[in-house]
Design a protein around this nucleic acid. Structure first.
Lengths: 207, 207
DNA sequence: GTCTATATGCAGATAGAC
DNA sequence: GTCTATCTGCATATAGAC
């Protein structure tokens, strides 16, 4: 019996199944490796299944991008909200972000590649852009929350500080992904946290 | 006459010609677009030419990676050496880096993609790693130079500051490449320069 | 919805004349 | 070194039975 008939499943479920498989394939071999055959195989489905879940490979890629970038948001900066000391909070959050990357470098290499490809592709550029804005906004929200809970206002605009924190985390993780140097990453986190906290909390010391 | 005979050229020259063409093709369509045919076409050579310049596509990719990453080093942090004030120097250097990216976003998107792919590919990972180290070392050298010319020593290790500066620049450029927000980038540069300069030059103000 | 079989095209690499 | 022609395999996508 060459053909095993499979159970009928709602399309949404099959799509998720294929997206999961696509991530698995890409984790190993990068975006290039994600052919429709490889993805369908990994999902345990015949290659033909691909095309009644997605109109084309491009459509799947777009769906994947949206799903993964959204998921990778997480609550990265949550740690800040739970400390009284800004420096401690920033350092803890940066360490948490680094730990997530260290625990699954392939996945984070993949999201970086996804963002690059999206930024270069006209039909996808808005996804990368929207994702970045959402990430900054979420960080901003946590900073305001911290500000309220502590009472003392920041001496810099929270939105601006959020932007810088996001840039700092992306710079540190990308350095780590290239060099895999734990000590360098932790030293950088310590210095950055301290520098930014001093700046953000300073009551014009020299005025 | 369907076949125009071409002049004989040293292999090194042909290789450079193909690498240039590969960059041109990738700038437009990303790494995926760089098929041996597309690259040879862009170079004005027949597809067969590819294989007496490079043993395989992988070999070309490796050569390309090495050449482009090395070229993209530039003297990015040179600006620091030429100012007495560290904050001014850091800000100028970061703005110069951002300007280079703004003047050719496609190229810098490409180098980012190259680094990602290299970091994931076992045979290429060392190139990305070595490149990153070289970049930090070069920045460190400029910081030491500044330190000597100014007389006052930094209050943080110059190598560490160099690491952080490299991370900061990569975070800011990658944010800009996603969101294309000039104002945000310049604000971030100002805040980071100020925060890091205060930290790096502080004579233990609170001691 | 599910599956097999297949159409069509392009990929990387090579052979062999010049 | 240079070129054309071609081998071989895999890519995406579709057709059509169940």
């Amino acid at each position: 019996m060459a053909s095993t008939t499979r159970e009928h499943r709602p399309t949404a479920e099959r799509r998720a199944q294929l997206l999961d498989a696509a991530v698995a394939v890409m984790r190993d071999g990068g975006i290039q490796a994600a052919t429709t055959r490889a993805v369908a195989d990994r999902a345990g489905l015949p290659q033909g299944a691909f095309h009644y879940c997605f109109r084309s490979k491009d459509e799947m890629f777009s769906a994947l991008l949206e799903r993964e970038l959204d998921a990778s948001l997480g609550n990265a900066w949550e740690a800040v909200a739970h400390t009284r000391d800004l420096e401690t909070g920033i350092a803890a959050a940066l360490r948490a972000i680094l730990d997530r990357v260290r625990s699954d470098p392939e996945y984070h290499l993949l999201t970086a590649e996804l963002v690059d490809v999206a930024a270069r592709t006209p039909e996808l550029a808005h996804i990368a852009s929207r994702e970045h804005t959402a990430y900054v906004d979420q960080t901003d929200r946590i900073l305001r929350q911290w500000q309220e809970s502590v009472g003392t206002p920041l001496s810099v605009d929270s939105q601006l500080l959020a932007q810088v924190l996001v840039a700092a985390s992306s710079g540190i993780t990308s350095a780590w992904l290239s060099a895999r140097d734990d000590e360098a990453a932790h030293e950088s986190i310590a210095l950055l946290s301290s520098a930014l906290a001093v700046k953000a909390a300073q009551q014009d010391l020299r005025a």
